[in-house]
């Protein structure tokens, strides 16, 4: 969003904007519109999940009971913490404090990678137990069809979410470098704020995924 900058005090102001206010306004609103498309993008998956869960409740509950609640819960806590560090990064960027921004961004990146690491462990577990839908799905388990449909959505939703985390981590690295170079100042913090919006959105998606995927059959016990 910010193109070549020439004078010192208007560093980071794109040529076609009148001033920083308009530029920040436009880029934040643009990001929110992008987040709307993301809401509807994940919405399609949630619609499919909700429909098949109402059609095959036992299959979904049995499959959900295989998921490791501790790892899921730990991931939720990690992601909430990363939201905090992200919000602190945006705040310090607004104050023009580049080093602090960089450090908070590094913390966020670290938490994000921890989250992805836990996902890798979980996926490994599923592959071991032949629970990945497709030709080698283990159909001897009870309610095999319902469980397979659950894992369809488990892998689709957490996979799409993990993909968004990977893209987010890539962007974080980019912003860490720019913060390290001291590019931002109290009038020009838009890009980091937008990164914050994206990251918080990805956290919100996980906030909905955790109860829907992991805590489905908890009230039936047997975990």
């Amino acid at each position: 969003m910010s193109a070549q900058s020439h004078t010192a005090e208007s560093r980071g102001l794109a040529h076609h904007f009148e001033d920083f206010n308009q530029q920040l306004d436009a880029s934040t609103f643009g990001m929110w519109l992008f987040l709307i498309t993301e809401i509807l993008f994940f919405g399609g998956l949630f619609a499919g999940y909700a429909l098949y869960r109402s059609h095959m409740p036992e299959g979904f509950q049995t499959a959900s009971s295989h998921l490791n609640i501790f790892l899921g819960g730990f991931n939720t806590v990690v992601l909430i913490a990363s939201s905090l560090t992200m919000a602190m990064a945006v705040r310090s960027c607004q104050l023009g404090d580049n080093p602090k921004t960089r450090n908070f961004l590094i913390a966020t990146l670290f938490l994000g990678l921890v989250f992805l690491g836990v996902k890798v462990i979980e996926y490994g577990e599923k592959i071991e137990h032949h629970l990945v839908p497709g030709p080698n799905f283990d159909t001897s388990i009870p309610f095999a069809q319902g469980q397979q449909m659950f894992y369809n959505f488990y892998f689709a939703m957490t996979g799409m979410h993990a993909l968004h985390m990977i893209i987010g981590s890539g962007l974080l690295i980019y912003f860490i470098v720019r913060a390290h170079q001291g590019r931002y100042h109290s009038n020009y913090f838009g890009p980091v704020e937008i990164m914050g919006l994206y990251w918080h959105f990805v956290d919100i998606v996980w906030i909905f995924l955790f109860p829907l995927l992991y805590l489905l059959g908890l009230h039936l016990g047997g975990h």
Partner: peptide, 23 residues
């Protein structure tokens, strides 16, 4: 159209306690 007076962006920054509280 409320272009800020001049270049600076009025953007009040929330105290840290808000963020930690939400966390």
């Amino acid at each position: 159209q409320q272009h800020g007076n001049g270049h600076s962006v009025q953007h009040h920054v929330a105290p840290v306690i808000h963020y930690v509280g939400v966390w």
